[in-house]
Design a protein around this nucleic acid. Sequence first.
DNA 1: GGAGACTGGCTGGCCGGCCAGCTAGACTGG
DNA 2: CCAGTCTAGCTGGCCGGCCAGCCAGTCTCC
Lengths: 209, 209
Amino acid sequence: MAAPTSEAPAANDRGKLDSQKARRIVAAMRQSVGRRGATGSTFDQVAGEAGVSRGLLHYYFGSKERLMAEVVRHDCDIRLARLDEALGGADDVEAMVAVLVSGLEDMVERDPGAYALIFELFTASRHNEELRDAMADLYRRIREHLGRVLAAKEEAGIVKLRGTPEGVASALFALGDGLALQMLSDPDTDSSETLDAAIATAESLLGGG
Amino acid sequence: MAAPTSEAPAANDRGKLDSQKARRIVAAMRQSVGRRGATGSTFDQVAGEAGVSRGLLHYYFGSKERLMAEVVRHDCDIRLARLDEALGGADDVEAMVAVLVSGLEDMVERDPGAYALIFELFTASRHNEELRDAMADLYRRIREHLGRVLAAKEEAGIVKLRGTPEGVASALFALGDGLALQMLSDPDTDSSETLDAAIATAESLLGGG
DNA sequence: GGAGACTGGCTGGCCGGCCAGCTAGACTGG
DNA sequence: CCAGTCTAGCTGGCCGGCCAGCCAGTCTCC
């Protein structure tokens, strides 16, 4: 068949993308995009940070876009895991909202890159179909996942949703993303008033207060 | 005021940036960034679309970053004007929310670039101080402006805010931005459930329903 | 010895910035 | 009124650096 270089990232060998090196590359790319932006992340730097040669990025992923698509998938997993961990123990509306808010604050302060990554990937995805599909898929999965969690909490009588589980989940994410955008773009402004209003909003979405 | 004799020479004069051509350049850049992204917008293309030579962009703005900062300012004015026009006549909570939502939908569908612009500018601003300041300033102004409008509506007994005017304004923007992000990144998914939840939320923020 | 994993020099295209130079109009002085 | 001079506004060729992608070759393990 064709040379390995042009086929490497195809589904033919998903196992290859599970290798240690491939994982290191994806992780390095994720961090770099968060810090330097998508266009600011060059193969040279990323390869260096992953401790591999520049050529290997091509060997594994074929193109920058496909590498970014892989970052999207990886990021999705990370976010889902965090979400589950955080929401698992919350057993009333206030606790759930508090968990979400503190998670947000924590992320914005400790690892702004992780949030910036979303916006970077979004802007990049507007000019590449492959990436757009991956992003849409990520959002869908996260939304459905949180939707299921919310439905379970409602079943357990902990929340009383103001809408369908997925709709409420989406609205919560929208709120969180928008807040992060504000907090990141203007870190010096005190955001407590905004957070208070957002908390009231989130609680009303979950049928609390 | 525009007397040639009183014009300062080559320095970065603000008066110079009011000229017809400067305006055309800013408008073209705004559209281009919305469509092609910040890094995808080259001086060549933008100059062509503005009907001027490439050199003139440098002559007026000195660098790409400064041109983008100018786009931010221009965009701020546009958004403020739209907001006032839309909210002016709304005289109950439902009408206000309906106006905001339809404005959002309209913008996302008819001119996705205008919303994408925000995210483009945000990601670009993370790597340039000048731009970051301009963005922070834009957000602050818009927030305060909507805050004042909301305060006036509350004074008039139309709304009953669940928080400070500015806090509520910020939360509304956060919600809107986050919704736009979702709608743009996954245009094929039906967003009506999300919108329903968001509408309920927005109305509760304004003390309605 | 050969197949697959991996490397890094190379290239072609691109783009922001620079600057030498053009033009039109205003202002001289003769 | 007309050369001559000046200048602000504007132009576009050029350059230097950058970077994704290519590929010829090396290494390793079977």
